[in-house]
Write a protein that binds this DNA or RNA. Structure first.
Length: 592
RNA sequence: GGCUCCGUAGUUCAACUGAAUAGAAUAUCAGAUUUCGGCUCUGAGGGUUGGGGGUUUGAAUCCCUCCGGGGUCACCA
């Protein structure tokens, strides 16, 4: 609250004046008073003792006296150990609430220096459908982008589509061999699922061929290289890089299927992008830059023709940037992509939302760009997040233990529909409207479940818990938000401007305090790239409101002034909750 | 093995970046309501914050060390 600042400044002034210190208000620690003590705000006294040269109690008493004298909003105080608990006047709460209500741009911060930031997320391969890991990636990247927007930055959402390489050729070759010309229409499969099916099919045949070769006495490594089907895939990659018409046509057709599939998955996820990058476009630039780097002496060529970057001085290993046969690797493409992005946009930085398994890769990438002389490397940041694991262990494509994104979302929505059927609150709604609400609720459950965890940490995905609707869950928060709307609708008139009351309960104070925290929470979430901070805030606020609702009359309140005050409070809780949920990519329906 | 991240109630997560008695949810147990044994409400138990040491008026948080786990060190992406 503005009052926290006022208080901090006042305390700093007092300490400077009385004890001859030289503190700024930022060095004064102010926190919310714990529920078990009397008071609203607490000044931590310990750090001030070296100036006051008195014990904590005396110092607290001393400062407290002055605060009551000089600040109108401070009604009284008490000192416990080294903590000065300040009790605020009742008028303060109403005016704080009104300040929030009348602030049209509440929750949208203004930055003195606006940054243009590119956020990359999703970054799929075009040889298989999206899975649970991508879901976390997408929700996280989307939400971080929204949070940064709210904190006052300009954001460009982007992805890099991994549409070329040996793995893509594997599914192409496999389709050629085994699909008999099957299309998404003829097989009745989403395009990305169809392509994924033949990618798996490739692996099956590959394994059989390897086993045969190993029976003949070959080592595993040899067999991997010598299996005919693998050699064919490699040949296809080479043809693709040479621009072979037939191969390119096949590539375009199958990627087209995949993009159609992705599009509907992204739509269901509720994510979007401002600009797409394709590795098939950027890898060539990467190759060119590697040539330049060779001239500059940043890279060196080995006898066999492969190109490397020596990072041993920086404490890392040597890194391959171009294969012996001159084809590009992952690193090559990423160098090209980064440069391209800075050419395309006037940006101050790029945030790469990529799993923590690639931390080493990005460390190396940023270092190489630095060595190449691109000063923009300073603005690059790897938003690294933990892997999603199942109770049964890791997800593995080949063992079929992957949780498919489309399947999972469908399940969540189904569970939501079962839950609403029981509650029966949707009478009078059309089938389409009900479907839309089920979608919203199901996705809210999934998004919240994945976003409430600190990005850095791994997630253990428990299917049963994820679809829970009680407790610390998305639907619980959503329900409270929807309830505020329905209350306000019932009351009709919604002009609560300037309502004050001298009768404010502890719960109400707590809620107003939390509402007032919202902008700090955004700032903090932006600073840490952490939707989890927003998610936890939403739950705290919703829980507080839920307890308030259970213990206070609102529409039934007889005192008109109090009733309006509580409606004002309700209105702001709904407003802030909805704003916060949107930052998580969660929509709020009118009813549920 | 080198580098790196992590370890908090039975379980899943918090703790405003160093402050008061480490909080929720869930599970468990006990009551209340309900003839609906699954809903709702109230309450309780549950912790040496992996172990040990250090810095500090104060440590889950910072430093050292050991133990345990993940990731990564590919001419894969």
């Amino acid at each position: 609250m503005a009052l926290e600042k006022v208080l901090a400044e006042k305390v700093a002034d007092l300490v400077n004046l009385k004890y001859g210190a030289n503190l700024s208000s930022k060095e004064i620690q102010i926190q919310k008073t714990l529920a078990s003590f009397e008071g609203d705000l607490t000044v931590v006294i310990f750090p001030l003792l070296k100036f006051s040269k008195m014990n904590p109690i005396q110092t607290g008493q001393d400062i407290g006296d002055e605060l009551v004298k000089s600040l109108e909003d401070v009604e009284s105080f008490n000192v416990v150990k080294g903590f000065l608990n300040v009790v605020l006047s009742n008028d303060n709460w109403g005016s704080t609430l009104n300040a929030i209500a009348s602030n049209v741009s509440f929750g949208l911060l203004k930055k003195s220096r606006v940054q243009n930031v590119m956020v990359e997320y999703s970054s799929p391969n075009t040889n298989k459908p999206l899975h649970l890991g991508h879901i976390r990636n997408n929700f996280l990247g989307y939400s971080v982008a929204e949070i940064l927007k709210a904190s006052g930055h300009n954001i460009i959402k982007t992805q890099i589509i991994n549409d070329r390489g040996i793995h893509i050729c594997k599914s192409m070759l496999s389709w050629q061999k085994f699909a008999n010309g099957g299309t998404p229409e003829s097989e009745g499969l989403k395009g990305d699922h169809l392509v994924g099916k033949y990618y798996v099919e490739f692996d099956k045949h590959y394994k059989v061929e390897m086993a045969e070769l190993m029976d003949k006495g070959m080592s595993k490594e040899e067999a991997m290289q010598e299996a005919p089907i693998f050699k064919e895939a490699k040949a296809m990659l080479k043809k693709w890089e040479q621009g072979d018409k037939e191969v390119v046509q096949l590539w375009e057709m199958m990627n087209g299927w995949v993009y159609q599939g992705f599009e509907s998955t992204y739509k269901a996820m509720g994510v979007d992008f401002d600009k797409l990058y394709y590795e098939s476009n950027t890898y060539l630039l990467g190759k060119k830059v590697v040539e330049e780097g060779l001239d500059k002496g940043v890279f060196y060529k080995r006898e066999d023709g492969s190109v490397w970057c020596d990072l041993s001085e920086e404490g890392l290993d040597e890194k391959l940037v171009l294969r012996q046969d001159g084809t590009a690797v992952y690193m090559t493409q990423d160098i090209g992509t980064a440069i391209e992005r800075y050419k395309d946009f006037n940006i101050n930085g790029i945030i790469y939302t990529v799993g923590n398994e690639q931390e080493y890769h990005f460390k190396v990438l940023f270092l190489i760009l630095k060595k190449l002389g691109y000063s923009f490397y300073e603005g690059l940041y790897h938003l690294s997040y933990g892997m999603v694991e199942l109770p049964s262990g890791k997800m593995k494509t080949r063992e079929g233990t992957v949780v498919d994104a489309d399947d999972l979302m469908k399940e969540m929505i189904y569970t939501a529909s079962e839950a609403t059927k029981e509650k029966g609150k949707l009478d009078g709604y059309s089938k389409q409207e009900i479907e839309k609400i089920n979608e919203t609720v199901g996705m809210a459950a999934l998004k919240y479940y994945l976003l409430k965890v600190d990005p850095k940490k791994g997630i253990l995905f428990n299917p049963e818990e994820s679809i829970d609707f009680n407790g610390n869950t998305g639907p619980f928060i959503l329900f409270n938000c929807v309830r505020t709307k329905s209350l306000l609708k019932k009351h009709g008139d919604n002009d609560y401007d300037g309502i004050v009351t001298s009768n404010v309960s502890e719960k109400e104070k707590s809620i107003i305090g939390k509402l007032n925290d919202y902008e700090n929470i955004i700032e903090n979430a932006a600073l840490n790239y952490s939707p989890a901070i927003i998610a936890n805030y939403c739950y705290d606020l919703a829980k507080d409101y839920s307890q308030f609702y259970a213990s206070h009359n609102i529409l039934n309140e007889e005192d008109e002034q109090i009733k309006l005050f509580r409606l004002n409070l309700t209105s702001q809780v709904g407003r802030v909750l909805e704003k916060a949920l949107i930052l998580l990519g969660i929509e709020v329906p009118e009813r549920m």
